[in-house]
Design a protein around this nucleic acid. Structure first.
Length: 188
DNA sequence: TAAGTGATCTCT
DNA sequence: GAGATCACTTAA
């Protein structure tokens, strides 16, 4: 049992470096559970525990923006790991992703839930994240980064399900269990 | 259950 | 340039 998690208070942890993200998106996604999404705005720092993520990986994943190849919008997915990929969905909601995998291989993890925020659009709205964060590295200097706060999430506490809203991708990809949910991680 | 909303992509 | 699509949310 993690002391910090138990007390509901967390100090700064270890910043996740590029090497953490330089792995396949599903691996990064699973390992992001329980990590802290950190946001600095107006001098204050918020640290929220990640509890829901999805992986989008490679050219063949028909649910991924990159499956048709590189375009102006998804170019960041082909770039350096650990960089933010933020885009507007349905004309209203900003989606926050972190680029994964090696250079030139498109992959990203969609951050869908952290702390009390449930849903990718609500998360970005709550943290004041918009398109201006696109293509910026997820490091403290950018005001948005990830930390390992020492919280260990048991595998039994994580549910793996199909990704949300990707029925169009066909059964092979829409049914793939590339969504991770930690139901116990919504307190902070 | 369906509308809102606008950038992006594909096809003409 | 037009039309379809979309990794969502909210109000009914």
């Amino acid at each position: 049992m993690n002391m910090a998690a138990g007390s509901g208070f967390r100090t700064a942890g270890t910043v996740l470096e590029r090497a953490f993200f330089e792995r396949p998106a599903p691996v990064v996604a699973e390992n992001l559970m329980g990590k802290s999404l950190c946001r600095r705005s107006e001098g204050a720092i918020d640290r929220l525990t990640l509890n829901e993520v999805e992986a989008y990986d490679g050219f063949e994943d028909r649910a991924s923006h990159a499956h048709r190849g590189r375009t102006l919008r998804n170019a960041v997915m082909f770039g350096r790991p650990g960089v933010c990929y933020v885009y507007l969905c349905y004309g209203i909601h900003w989606m926050l992703n972190i680029v994964t995998g090696p250079q030139d291989f498109p992959g990203a993890v969609l951050l869908r839930g952290a702390g009390a925020f449930s849903g990718p659009g609500r998360l970005t709205k709550g943290l004041g994240i918009d398109g201006s964060m696109n293509q910026r590295p997820a490091i403290p200097r950018s005001g948005l980064w990830l930390e390992d706060g020492g919280i260990v999430v048991g595998r039994r506490d994580i549910q793996r399900t199909a990704r949300v809203g990707v029925d169009y991708a066909g059964p092979r990809w829409s049914r793939r269990k590339w969504r991770w949910v930690w139901s116990g991680g919504q307190q902070t």
